[in-house]
Design a protein around this nucleic acid. Sequence first.
DNA 1: GTCATTAGATACTAATCGTTATCTAACAAT
DNA 2: ATTGTTAGATAACGATTAGTATCTAATGAC
Lengths: 201, 201
Amino acid sequence: MRYNDSHKKETEQKITNAALLEFRSNGYHGVGIDGIAKSAGVTSGAFYTHFNSKSDAFLRAIELGLEELNNELARRQGEDTGEWLSEFLEWYLTPPDEANEISKKTLQSFPVQGGCALTTLAPEVCRSGIKAKQAFEKELVTTTSLIKNGLNGGGNREAWSILSGLLGAITLARSVEDNDTAVEILSSVLSTTRALFKQQQ
Amino acid sequence: MRYNDSHKKETEQKITNAALLEFRSNGYHGVGIDGIAKSAGVTSGAFYTHFNSKSDAFLRAIELGLEELNNELARRQGEDTGEWLSEFLEWYLTPPDEANEISKKTLQSFPVQGGCALTTLAPEVCRSGIKAKQAFEKELVTTTSLIKNGLNGGGNREAWSILSGLLGAITLARSVEDNDTAVEILSSVLSTTRALFKQQQ
DNA sequence: GTCATTAGATACTAATCGTTATCTAACAAT
DNA sequence: ATTGTTAGATAACGATTAGTATCTAATGAC
């Protein structure tokens, strides 16, 4: 072998991260191999030494994207101040304060800006094959388990309701032109969900 | 003029309906002009005598799709048995009983099968330009008004929460492979939303 | 019946799609 | 220093993309 193993692994990670970013922003059919490769700083030749196909990279993007969500969730539960759910909901549903002159990359990581795979990839998975759905479901089971374990006596019902509200709110907010309307949608679901699970946390 | 006006209008409607159907099932980038034209039983030449561009047809599909949702909503409120919200939620979130040997076309009209523009087009609108968002928002205002007017003392908050839950539930249910999981998601959001607004209807 | 109009079909453009084949060059091993 | 391996670049494949230009044929008006 000419390069050491870590070099290859790093490139693969760069491409996987780029695939996640591009699929999130543009959708599965909204970006090509060239676009993903360019975003990763390589060419399509490099792409195919690491992935067999576009759909293969999509599967990896699904895994990586939902793992990131699960990590965010677990982290907030770990440093629990007794209000993890409320804080998680607020992080997910509150648009970043642009007055803070936040960097463009940091801005992109906000769910409201399309920075969460749950919201941005789920509609793509709907239109994908069985493999994508299985990959999506596998990670989603972890998400619901985390939520359930963090709630006092909550079951799957509560977890699905929370996740549905989050996904729906972000999608609707990003689908309207007026910023005030978007903020109204987000704060509506935030307060409704908070009220719904006030006791159970 | 060679054909009478109604003939041209009929063709345009066929294409608009096909565009809605195709955009809903495949997403904006998941289908081309040829695909839409073929679905409408014409060729791409006919498409461009009725629409200036693909994005133009998308705008019309957004309008038509959300109008259909608003009609469903208004109809249920019109023949109100005192339970319109509950019935609307059930229609939206209950998978069709396949044992009933329902026709394929009827099956396709169910929201759970991707038959609602709110759920299927919103993620596409997110990634579209300002015109699509304005068109989407314009129709959505009608939807929320209808819901508000049908609730006892409900405001925008309630309407946005209901719509977010519906959108999220359908999207999640369609993103998992296991049918039992999908049913669980749908029934979870159905019961949560029903409980939330039991008094207000 | 002839003619003017035009809805729609056909054929084409340049660009891009996912993928494969070939080539280059950077490195580890000798 | 030479060599073998292979990560990654380059180039090409046929298919498809959105859009345009040209053509055909159906029709109402005369």
